[in-house]
Amino acid sequence: MPDRMIRTAALAIALMLPLAALAQTAPDAAQAARAAAQRLDQAARQLDSADDARDRVRALSETLRAFEDGLEAMRDGLRRASIREKSLLAELQAREDEIAQLLGVLQSMGGAPAPVLFLHPGGPMGTARSGMILADVAPALNARADDLRAKLAEVRTLRALQETAADTLRRGLDGVQQARAELSKAVADRQPLPRRFTEDPVRTAILIASTETLEGFASGLSEITQNESPGSLPDISHRKGALPLPVQGEVLRRAGEADASGVTRPGLVLATRPRALVTTPAAATIRYRGPLLDFGNVMILEPQAGLLFVLAGLDVVFGATGEVLPAGSPVGLMGGQEAEIGAVITQSGEGGGNTRSETLYIEVRQDNQPVDPVTWFAMQEG
């Protein structure tokens, strides 16, 4: 799989080089890009040694997550670079008069012959005094000149970074799109996963048709199974509050917070980027996957007996009902269309933009009662 290796390595280099210039301006973004580049390199090696489709699914999932993290770091670094450049330009513009005077003094000092420079109309005493004053002033002038040179150099560096951003982002988005396509193919090609039960399609259709609420559907899930194996996955209550969120995103609404229409839900709403990868936070059985009510495509996961993770709003769903997924397995992709390169750069340059246009609804149900997802997931700001 050398094409994957080359493309992944190319993005790793592309992420490393421009953000290295941000080591002082945006150290967090630079560090995140380096970490993503290292993960991409590791994922590339996993892809190169993958023996079957199941191995490729794991490696491609990690590749896609690393791509997303790397592009997020690039956007963040680009935003910070733009903000820093505007700040420097505003400062330099405000100091135009001071800079002009400083340049005039330095030019006059540099253009006059040394003997003339130190002569004074007042004679030797005046010359001595002017020399002492000049000795005191020269270091300050040099310091101001050095500061000016450093700021101008930083502006040039930041501008160069933004000029190379288009190519960097293009490589990254190309890599993401290829990884998504290959992930979908690998999921389709992999051998069937272990199953705890098989789905009865007739009973499922009847349950969907007779259901008016998510609670009602969840309570009837046991009715759509056939040949269910006894037992369950191990208890994960010890991981409460530490499970990773299933998708990279920002909290839009917490449990119980009203939306624009005044509707409240017991779950969490995450704002995500278009086509973001959604994974299972823990090993889990797929209890249901497919369209449901007004939630769009829904994935209902059972990590342990009596505990359900409901993920609603996906565009593409992976897997089959009854399958047991390892932790971190891909369960789907968000919808939407990624912004064009120019739009990404413009939004970053303006310090914002609605780049997280998709929403994933996460509801946690324990013994068929909703509980606040915050009690289960490790929440991250931003």
Rank of each mutant, 00 (worst) to 15 (best):
M132C: 03
A143Q: 15
M109I: 14
L102Y: 12
G110Q: 13
V137D: 08
M125Q: 07
I133M: 09
Q93T: 15
M132R: 12
P121F: 01
I133C: 01
Q107F: 09
D97P: 00
A90F: 03
E85T: 12
E98C: 01
R95E: 11
I133F: 11
R144N: 09
G126R: 01
L148P: 02
R129T: 06
G123P: 00
H120F: 00
Q93W: 11
D136Q: 15
D146Q: 14
D146V: 13
A112W: 04
L134W: 12
P139Q: 11
A128P: 00
I99S: 05
Q107C: 05
T127M: 06
L103F: 15
G126D: 01
P115A: 07
A112T: 15
M125S: 02
L103C: 14
I99R: 13
G111I: 14
G126A: 04
R129F: 02
A94E: 09
T127R: 00
F118R: 07
L102P: 02
A94S: 07
E91K: 03
V137W: 10
A90I: 08
E91A: 03
P121Q: 03
A138V: 15
H120G: 01
K151A: 11
G131C: 03
M109P: 00
L141N: 05
A114E: 13
E85L: 10
A143W: 11
K151P: 01
V105H: 02
Q93V: 05
Q93A: 15
A100T: 14
P115Q: 05
S130D: 06
V116S: 08
A150N: 07
A112P: 00
P139S: 11
P121C: 00
A112I: 15
E85M: 07
L141V: 13
A140P: 01
E96I: 08
P115F: 03
G126V: 02
L103I: 15
I99N: 06
L117S: 03
A138L: 15
D147I: 02
P121L: 00
V105D: 06
A140Y: 10
M109A: 08
A140H: 12
P115C: 03
M109L: 12
L141P: 00
L88D: 10
L92M: 13
G104P: 02
M132T: 10
N142L: 15
